[in-house]
Design a protein around this nucleic acid. Structure first.
Lengths: 329, 329
DNA sequence: TTGGGGCACTAGCGCGCGCAAGTGCCGTGT
DNA sequence: ACACGGCACTTGCGCGCGCTAGTGCCCCAA
């Protein structure tokens, strides 16, 4: 229960071999500029393994002034599916460089002590641009450096991976011959900003292509608003719907199916994110796939560059997103 | 770029006020058993605020031998939706006790250095029982303590929140008059164990109720296997399907709809997890909802109890799961 | 024989903090 | 007058490790 056994330290190894602790340290860390005989090196490593030595993280961090931790601040959004792949790739890249990726989500309600204070990460990475207020707090409070804090994209609309989708949705509908479109937004307050951004990007692209956005509607899967919207759209000659994401698209598709409206004959729907749901729906959902894995790698390399681990900044992915064509368009 | 400014230490405060560093420490930590005059206390706090003092996490951890971090090891499963709520609640509970919750996912491929080595958490919590091998490694490698390591549920089938669902699914179908059932499994290798468990729990409960499980089928949403399965089931007189989760259920529902099979008339389907998808489907999916928020709180309190922060172990939630009845049954 | 230069180590400081043990001083009781 | 206790501090060790500044020794050249 109580008595957790004393941990094995580098001194234990040194004592057990009758050498100095410094030598042990040099061997363990492969310290450059130190000459250690092969015999000693082997003995140290063997003894370390025998005793089950594991360097004390806190002590290392204290001595070297860095704990090799990169903190990713996650949005409080329901974007789970993509996030997983993104983080997986980023973790892998950072891990290879000896850094650990830790995530943290600001919860809306809780006035929880921010993790960066406890963790003292070398770098803080907002996965999505933070509100300016939060950014200021972070810059002030966190001793750590901040990725995307200054010259970098610090607003939603500046992030390529976030802005690419809506244009693709509109273009796709344009190619399929739709001229009168509607936008289906989410009503989730946490997504307010992003939803607004996507709607306005869709509008812009539509204008460029000479299409008409006849309606922008907030749709919820809880009340009858989706059914109303679908009816209004069909009545007013709208033939294509740009949905905020696949969930919203699914709600629209569902309402259309229930109303006996043919898809994609009378109404085409394009989702966003290419979630697993998109494939499962009947009819299967056309959606926009974002290369989140590539994005994760890219951001991780950016982080390593900022940390001075990698000399050259990574090249941006050429393609941020693409359309996956299925049955609803 | 390079020169990150020297951090403010407790010594800075002490020097600036002409007092000893220990006094500063006593004030900052409210160390019990120390008497500090109100005047000094105020001065210290004021100066700390003025200088922007933030205790160095690594140094604290080194000195006190604990860093107040609890590491949750997440499964490599697609269970995102529930996980969020679970972690949110657990984070909140731990935070109130001065502990930070950090999560980590073992990725299948990467031979990534485990985060617990870097982090040295006070406690490691497997969100879902780990394979015995991993458990052994963890116990050996991690200096930290492990929740659910010994007398606790250490197998999937011992975890109430994991085992409650399938019985409910079967009971629900029983109540709706179905006597001949099928089980739809996932083929995802990561879910092998859990899928097997759920299938066998369903079988057991069916046997108790005198129902027949006519078929257990692995279903994929990528090939035509789902369509085949649905056809076979209907042909063989199966009227109720217990699905591994909502995704699988959605695939089954989709196949049935495409085949023109009436739901729930000729086939009833019950999902698991009550994901957002369940509500969106047409027809909307009957599913099993697990109280993940309550579960998160429960586990967090268990952790605090194990850490000796809370004296009494928390009471188990009375209800682990319940059926949400919708259109597919 | 002496000197110089590497090789293979060792001595020991400092990172910032928690905390046990000690110190000076003032007020009170006898 | 002196002891004594408690208040309000201070001194200083130790946590485990990284790393700089040595130190002893052996080999080779002059």
């Amino acid at each position: 229960m109580g008595g957790r056994e004393r941990r094995v330290t580098a001194s234990d190894i040194a004592r057990s071999l009758g050498i100095s602790r410094a030598t042990v340290g040099f061997v363990i860390n492969d310290t450059p500029g130190q000459t250690i005989s092969e015999a000693t090196r082997r003995k140290v490593l063997a003894e370390a393994a025998r005793l089950g030595y594991r360097p004390h993280a806190a002590a290392q961090a204290l001595a070297r002034g860095s704990n090799r931790i990169v903190l990713f601040i996650l949005p409080d959004w329901p974007v789970e599916h993509s996030l997983r792949r993104y983080l997986e790739e980023a973790t892998l890249v950072l891990d290879r460089a000896g850094y650990s990726l830790v995530t943290w989500t600001r919860h809306a309600g809780g006035r929880s002590r921010p993790l960066w204070e406890t963790l003292d990460p070398d770098l803080v990475v907002p996965v999505v641009p933070l509100p300016r207020d939060d950014l200021d707090v972070l810059r002030r409070e966190a001793g750590a450096r901040l990725l995307f804090g200054g010259d970098e994209p610090s607003e939603l609309h500046e992030v390529p991976s976030l802005r690419a989708g809506p244009a693709l949705q509109v273009e796709h509908l344009h190619e399929r011959g739709h001229a009168r479109l509607a936008v289906a937004r989410t009503g989730d307050p946490r997504l307010e900003l992003l939803a607004g951004l996507r709607a306005s990007l869709a509008r812009t692209r539509a204008a460029e292509l000479g299409l008409e956005i006849a309606d922008v509607r907030t749709v919820s899967d809880e009340d009858g608003s989706t059914a109303d919207a679908v009816r209004d759209w069909v009545d007013s000659g709208v033939t294509g719907v740009v949905a905020y994401n696949d969930d919203i698209a699914a709600a629209v598709v569902g309402a259309a199916v229930r109303a006996g409206i043919a898809l994609p004959g009378r109404l085409a729907v394009v989702g966003h994110d290419d979630s697993p749901l998109a494939r499962l729906l009947v009819p299967a959902l056309t959606s926009v796939r974002v290369d989140v894995a590539g994005l994760g790698r890219y951001v991780a390399h950016r982080a390593l560059h900022t940390l001075g681990v990698e000399d050259t900044p990574p090249a941006e992915p050429d393609v941020w997103a693409s359309v996956v064509h299925r049955e609803t368009s």
